[in-house]
């Protein structure tokens, strides 16, 4: 297993570096922040002074070398917009995104595996058709629209929940619900499909012929085989959520890393963009390793040979 982790880590370094360099270069293509931070009435001299003070007058390769040197010393720079250390801002917001992602993916997996298995166990039943239809709808609903509708229904009309913001447990419900809808739909379909295939597999017939109980067959044999693709898809969903579910964070005023990154882009806050992408890329890199490890634990065939 350690070899698997080592191999995945080694192969992930190049894309990780590519992302960091790419973001550095691309963010600078959005223009010089002097044109945004200084009033339109500012003179060219003022703009030149501002650019020089923040190093934007240097060639991009020189800016990049300075950036690498600073990062090597743990310094990700200072936010041009807030004046705060960029990495502090990112580390303040990332846990807020992470907690939403973890809650969402846990509920999504439990719900979708339950519903998908249930539907697969009685194929073509009313329950199966209902689950299939609902999961297609859930997978297709735009999260932006669903988020706004959930505010309208649960906050404005029923007055059960707060509209937005982050605070007590109640404030988590609507963002989680909005994030949950797509993953539950997709994962329920994947689980159902895999379960239907697995339930008709020869080893299930063999197990039944040997008198194994249905519970044991489903839990020990069918689910174990059917869950591997579900885990892979859930991993992809988790990557999306950890990336900062920008739309949902924006609608609910959730102080997550997606919201921060969008604001930083709008403000041409290069240091914050770079720090955010660094953390997101690192998190995705770790998450991918975790998914591989989990996958290998569930399916011995994908483990590297000893």
């Amino acid at each position: 297993m350690l070899r698997l982790i080592g191999r995945r880590a080694a192969t992930s370094i190049v894309p990780f570096l590519f992302v960091v360099i790419g973001v550095f270069a691309l963010s600078r293509m959005t223009g010089n922040p002097a044109s945004l931070y200084l009033p339109l009435t500012a003179t060219p001299e003022m703009r030149a002074t501002f650019s020089a003070a923040h190093g934007f007058d240097q060639p991009i390769w020189k800016q990049f070398l300075d950036y690498v040197q600073d990062v090597a010393h743990g310094d990700f720079g200072t936010s041009l917009w807030t004046g705060r250390p960029a990495m502090s801002m990112v580390l303040d917001t990332f846990p807020n995104t992470l907690i939403l992602a973890v809650i969402t993916i846990m509920i999504a997996v439990v719900l979708s595996v339950t519903l998908g298995s249930w539907a697969a166990y009685r194929p073509n039943s009313i329950l199966d058709k209902a689950v299939s239809a609902l999961s297609v709808i859930a997978a297709s609903v735009p999260d932006f629209w669903f988020a706004l509708m959930s505010i309208l229904v649960f906050a404005v009309t029923l007055n059960w929940l707060p509209t937005s913001g982050m605070g007590g447990a109640a404030t988590y419900v609507l963002p989680v619900l909005a994030l949950l809808i797509n993953p539950v739909g997709v994962l329920a379909q994947v689980t159902r499909g895999e379960m239907v295939t697995a339930l008709s597999a020869p080893y299930v017939k063999v197990a039944r012929s040997k008198g194994a109980g249905e519970g044991r067959i489903v839990a020990r044999h069918v689910l174990r085989n059917a869950l591997a693709p579900t885990v892979t898809v859930a991993g992809t969903m988790a990557v999306y959520l950890i990336n900062g579910a920008v739309v949902v964070e924006t609608v609910f005023g959730w102080p997550g890393i997606g919201n921060l990154t969008i604001n930083a882009l709008q403000q041409r806050d290069f240091a914050t963009i770079q720090a955010a992408v660094f953390v997101i890329a690192l998190a995705i890199f770790i998450l991918n390793i975790l998914i591989d490890v989990l996958y290998a634990a569930m399916d011995p065939r994908v483990r590297p040979a000893k």
Binding site: N159, L161, G167, A169, A170, Y172, V173, V176
Partner: peptide, 16 residues
Amino acid sequence: GVAVLPLAISACSSSS
């Protein structure tokens, strides 16, 4: 239960 728990909590702690 996992899905409904926050709703139940919210009923006790609605910020409105």
